[in-house]
Each structure stands twice: as C-alpha cells, then as structure tokens.
Design a protein around this nucleic acid. Structure first.
Length: 137
DNA sequence: AGCGTGACGAGTA
DNA sequence: ATACTCGCCACGC
C-alpha cells in the first residue's frame, strides 16, 4: 500500500467516450509496457532506464525516460533510475525516503563527497529482472 | 511524411 | 571528478 494510491487518471482502461482525461488520453501502448515492467521491480531494488528498454526489446532509455516523466506517477517511479545511480533533481527527497524505507543499497558517502547526496549503489541495487522473469512481458 | 523532443547512456577530452 | 558529443527511437505536432 505504501505503493501510494495514485491518480487512476493515468490508467485509461475504460475510456468509453473521449474522456477529457488530463494525464490519461489513452496511454500509448509502449508506455503501458514500460509501466508493467516498472511494477515488477521488487522493493529494495532498481532497474535503469536502459534495463527496462532492453527487457522490452523496443525503444531505448530515452523512451523509457519519457514514459516515466509522463506517467511515472502510476507506478513505483523511484525504482527506475539512471544508470549512474545519481538521483534526479526533484527526486532527492522523496526518492531517498523510499530507498531508506525499502533498504535499497546506497553508496557510502566518502568524506570528500560530504555535502553530496547519497548515490544508489548500483552494483547491489540493480535488479536483473530475475532469472525467471526474463523473457516475459 | 517529416521534424523536434527528451526522468538516457556510452564514449571521449 | 566535470563537460562535452553523438546515437538512440516512440510520440505528438
């Protein structure tokens, strides 16, 4: 539940009649697949934009990024991250709370890095999609 | 049927 | 570490 109830506006399942939906003019097919993958990422782990694209075997990191920017609110958006583990501007606070709550591995800050925000420890946090999951969706 | 736009990513300097 | 460049490709004009 801490998945937070999101605006269902982003899920246009039943838009029988041209809904004036703000966010939700029929989610493009590709966007829906991206969100499906995002929902599979286990708590405490992350996938990069590129990983998601690779899994889908369609589009690329930028396409995934666009989808997350537009419809990310409908899924655990903090589990789809940049490959270098750097938190995006605007996500520092909220995402960090999620990572701490889920136990997502963060990189220990070196003294020289004091004053910087923690980065994700991608070596440990990155989720490969799970052996079983590969090849589905 | 183009064309511009990116929550990207790898490479190079 | 930073700052560029370039390739990527679905989507909305």
């Amino acid at each position: 539940m801490s998945e937070q109830s999101l605006p269902e506006a982003a899920r246009p399942e039943q838009t029988g009649d041209a809904p004036p939906d703000l966010t939700g003019d029929a989610l493009p097919e590709y966007a829906e697949r991206v969100l499906d993958v995002a929902e599979l990422i286990p708590p405490g782990r992350v996938m990069t934009y590129g990983d998601v694209a690779e899994w889908l075997e369609t589009g690329g990191p930028r396409q995934v990024g666009r989808v997350m920017a537009l419809y990310g609110g409908a899924v655990p958006w903090w589990r789809v991250v940049r490959a270098d583990g750097v938190l995006l501007p605007g996500h520092e606070l909220r995402a960090l709370d999620h990572y701490r709550a889920e136990g997502t591995p963060l990189k220990a800050a070196s003294r020289a890095a004091e004053g910087h925000l923690p980065r994700l420890d991608m070596r440990r946090a990155r989720w490969d999609g799970g052996e079983r999951a590969q090849g589905h969706i």
